[in-house]
Structures are given as structure tokens and as C-alpha cells.
Amino acid sequence: MSRALTFHIGAIIVLAVLQFILPVYHSGNLARIMVLAVYAMGYNVMFGYTGLLSLGHAMFFAVGMYGAGLSIRLFDMAAAPAFGIGIIASILFSLGVGLLALRTIGVAFMIVTLMFSQAIYLLILYFNPLTRGDEGFVIPQAVRQVAGFDLSDPTTRYFAALLLFAIALLGMVWLVRSRTGRVLVAIRENEERARMLGYDSWAHKLFAVVLSGTMAGAAGAAYGLLFGSVGASFAEVPFSILPLLYVLLGGPGTVIGPFVGTLFMFYLRDISSSFTDAHLLVAGIVLVLLTMYARRGIMGVVRERWAKWLP
């Protein structure tokens, strides 16, 4: 087994053990962080590996979340099939977004994703009778059951989150070492050159958008089912900026980076909220400082200095 694989499996084992050690408050936080990290890992597929900067990733998260949530609310579905609907909706939606948005590049791409995301947010508000708009709705505990497991139970919830996180993390380890993953990096570095080596850059970018959007959607659906709440704030612009922040902080183009970034930001916010309501201030300052002084993020620096083998 390679060093990279050992390291990431080790990280998963450590997280599993932590559930038994940490106080309830922190293991609850960690469950949330793992789900959000899947969202950030999805973002990293596009931004960190393929070089596509999206400013509207909340739309994918929201499509997954509302896909699952509305299936339950409107059609009385069970949790597992609702999760499936969330995933399918994410795949189809990100395919559509990719087909349109990838006709643009650079700044135009960022603004197109921002606009699509804003449209999704406004649609959620507009169909207020179905979605309950800004207020959102709660998925009742009775529905949050899969195969006899109660997803609202803290321990079950933790391991459900860990399962999703582990699948995403090991999937990423596999992806970045695969032929496709290397082509994505090639496109990030020099798309013209990649094309002139015979790679279909458009198809690869579309794949990146769909994978990225689906991971974000899976995180959204899981978030709704695990924590019970579905709301329009998960489709708003600030929620699109979060994964950018997580990935920039943790290290774009590293597998574990998005998790590290999410962990740090989550606790930074947690600590700062004890003395100010303006918790987004921290996010703003971190964003500015990162772009100015630390473009590689935490794990990027770790990889450069100490662990060249880190994928």
C-alpha cells in the first residue's frame, strides 16, 4: 500500500476513534465538519485540480438538499430513496450547468456560476408554498431512518457522516492518481497544451463540473437528512464562498486540504462567535490574507516542505 493511501486511511481511522474520545459537543461539530468537507472536496475537484473557479457552488449543495428534502416533504418518501433523488438531481443539474457555463472561461465563468446560483436561490424563495422560502423546513426525526438506523442519533449521525466522508476522501485519492485526474491537473496548468497532447479538454472539464456538483449535492442531501433542517440560506451567495474559503485555507489541489480548511474555519468561527456576532469578519480577513500571503494553503505548504508524496 502506498504512503498516500496509508495516510488517508489512517486519517479516517483517527476520525472513527475520535468519536469515542471527544465530548459530545465536539463530535457533533466534527460530524458537521465532515459533511461540509465533502462539499469542499467537491469544490476542490473544480477549483484545486481543474482550475475552474466557481462562485456559485451553493446551487449544487442546495439542489441535493432540496432534492432530498422536497421528496420527503412533498412525496412522503423514505430517507434512503430521497437521498438517491438528491444525488440524481445533482448529477442532472450539474450536467446542465456544465454544458452552459463551460462555454465561458475565466471571469465570465465565475459570474455565470454566480448568476445561476442566485437564480436557484431566488427560485427557492419564489416557490415559497413548496419550499417555505427563507424559513425553510424541518425533516422530522421519524423520517430520518435508514435500514433501522436513526440518523438523528449523535453516534449514528457521526458514523454516517464519516462513511460519506471516507468514500469521498478515498475516491479523491484514487481520482488524482488516475489518468483522468492527471489530465485535469494538466488542464489547470495549461489547457491548450493538454488539448494538443490529444486530450479532450472540454469533456474532462464537464466531467469535473459534474463530479464536483454531485459531491456538493451529496453533501447537501446528507446535511438535510443528518441535521434535519433545509433552508434557503444554504443557497445564498455566502454559502457559495465558504467552500472557496475552506479550500484556499486547507490547500487547493490537495486531497486532505479541504477537510483541514473546513476544520480550521469551523473552529475559528466557533471561537470568534463567543465575542462577536460578526463571524463573517473572520472569513473576510482570512480570505484577504490567504490571497496575499498563502496561496498554497496549509496542506500545500506541508506538501512543499515536508511531504512531497502527498496527493
Binding site: G284, V286, V288
Partner: peptide, 14 residues
Amino acid sequence: IVATIGMLYVIQQI
């Protein structure tokens, strides 16, 4: 763009 997003939050929150 990323830096001005940061500035947005800083200004708004201050």
C-alpha cells in the same frame, strides 16, 4: 476577485 470577496465581508461586518 477572491480578495474583494474578503473585503466585502470585512466592510460589511465591521
